[in-house]
């Protein structure tokens, strides 16, 4: 499983619009022209993606910094 967040923590979340549980699937993330696929929770119907807090403030922030040379 992915090391960047724990999907088990997010089991209770559903897409409110489509009323179906989010599923782990490949989603492209990108920054400053660099793109790569990662496993994230996504609504299989409308494609709404959940970015967990720990991912946004953790690995994502690190990638942003590294790519920015900040």
């Amino acid at each position: 499983m992915s090391e960047y967040f724990d999907p088990a923590k997010y089991e209770g979340w559903v897409c409110a619009d489509c009323n179906i549980p989010l599923q782990l699937s490949k989603v492209d993330v990108s920054y400053l022209g660099n793109s790569f696929p990662v496993d994230l929770l996504k609504c299989p119907n409308c494609g709404l993606v959940l970015i967990p807090e720990e991912l946004a403030l953790g690995k994502m922030a690190e990638v942003e910094k590294a790519l920015e040379d900040k």
């Binding site: 989603v27 492209d28 993330v29 990108s30 920054y31 793109s35 994230l40 807090e53 994502m60």
Partner: peptide, 11 residues
């Protein structure tokens, strides 16, 4: 919380 990375948009 916030992030700058974009989601679902490939290069």
């Amino acid at each position: 919380y916030s992030h700058r990375m974009e989601v679902g948009i490939g290069a």
